[in-house]
């Protein structure tokens, strides 16, 4: 284990919960937004750690919450290299990668101003992911059917 990653565990050591590591630098706050975990327990954010993989990285730690795969896969939209560590009794009991989800519900807004999802408060957004690579994800709005490059500014 490199000294850098040890440092992140030292500073952010938790006994129980979820650690999201290797987040693309400066995306941590956006990821907290899309995960909708602000009310879910103690959330700590570390930004701009040195990373062998991405140069700089962010880390998020959520205490006493074990996020499931479906939930954490949302992270892949903006940070495909992120890793998830599930911690119980101070041990990493599960370590997993994130995968770009097929459907993205609610968390994004459609860039089309006359899309029905921007006009009625009771119409939630929904994007169907059509294609993606390491750098970008394209989704089609389930409602207005327009294809869009999914960028952080589309997070509500």
């Amino acid at each position: 284990m490199s000294s850098n990653s040890q440092r992140s565990f030292k500073v952010y050591k938790i006994d129980n919960g979820t650690v999201i590591d290797h987040i693309n630098s400066s995306m941590a706050l956006k990821i907290i937004d899309i995960l909708e975990i602000k009310k879910d327990g103690i959330v700590s954010i570390g930004m701009n750690f040195d990373s062998a993989v991405t140069g700089k990285k962010d880390i998020i730690k959520i205490e006493n919450v074990h996020l499931d795969k479906k939930h954490t896969d949302m992270i892949a939209i903006f940070s495909p290299q992120a890793t998830i560590n599930i911690i119980k009794d101070s041990e990493v009991v599960e370590k997993r990668q994130v995968e770009v989800p097929k459907v993205i519900n609610k968390v994004l807004r459609c860039p089309n101003p006359t899309c029905v999802t921007n006009k009625y408060h009771d119409c939630d957004s929904k994007f169907i992911v059509e294609h993606y690579d390491e750098n970008q994800t394209y989704g089609r709005c389930y409602y207005c059917e327009r294809e869009t490059l999914i960028t952080p500014d589309l997070v509500k």
Partner: peptide, 29 residues
């Protein structure tokens, strides 16, 4: 009234709804 509330109401009166709407995605919603 929201579009969805109108549709929930009217769908109780008929066998199908034909709709035109100025916003994209309204029929899907």
């Amino acid at each position: 009234e929201t579009l969805k509330d109108t549709i929930k109401t009217v769908s109780g009166y008929c066998d199908a709804i034909i709709m035109r709407h100025p916003y994209e995605g309204a029929a899907r919603a």
